[in-house]
Amino acid sequence: MDELLKYDHVEISFAGRPVVHDVSVSLEPGEILGLVGESGSGKSTLIKAAMGLLGGNGLVTRGDIWFRGQNIPDLSDQELRKIRGAQIGMIFQDAGASLCPIRTIGGQIYESMSAHMEISKEEAKKRSLDLFHKLHFKNAERIWDSYPFELSGGMNQRAGIAIAMLMNPAVLMADEPTSALDVAVQKQVVLEMRQLRDMFGTAIIIVTHDIGVVSAMADRVLVLKDGNAMEYGDAGQVLKNPQNAYTKKLLSAVPRLRRN
């Protein structure tokens, strides 16, 4: 099948110092890739690079990131703005900070939707509240009218998930989307993301420390350490029968719930 997104021997540096080295990975439509690895290994950097969001001192210093025939590092800011959100969506690791502090959740959702599609405010709200309910928001109307500071950590995270999903992008980058959620809500988010893939063929990269989430979602897994790919392959294979020493160490450190 055709690749939708392809990292080809990518090196990424901050202020001239490489932090991601020679990573190659590709994503087909409808594929879910789990990105796991050590804290500081370059997971967030890797997905931010595909959206041109590395910030002032970050740069793709080698290799290409191909998306629909375009090499992302070559694109202008204007071209990137067309891709961001609408074609490649992002759920940020720091959900609270990625939301605008002085605008309501509803205002932000309507703004980002109407920037990329013909939609009335009523319709945007209706679709949002539907999704809010699925994400276990009890009082969806209140969330729509709330400012980020009036919501809890996990509520902001869910608002970020909703904003990204409502845009129905071809690729969804989800950076620790469930780290602030209780396990009941987490399960629901996993379900909704899988459903997005099943219904629209959305390709998803999910960065997570939760191996349970990876095994519930991912088709393939990439394991990173110190900016290097340690292991890359079929999720079942990697999680059940890891070959790399670091992957083995990582999996053996997972605390398991004793149920009896």
Binding site: S39, E176, S179, A180, H209, K249, L250, A253
Partner: peptide
């Protein structure tokens, strides 16, 4: 949630 952003080995 002081360990929620940490991988299991660092955790």
């Amino acid at each position: 949630e002081a360990t929620s952003a940490l991988d299991v080995t660092v955790q």
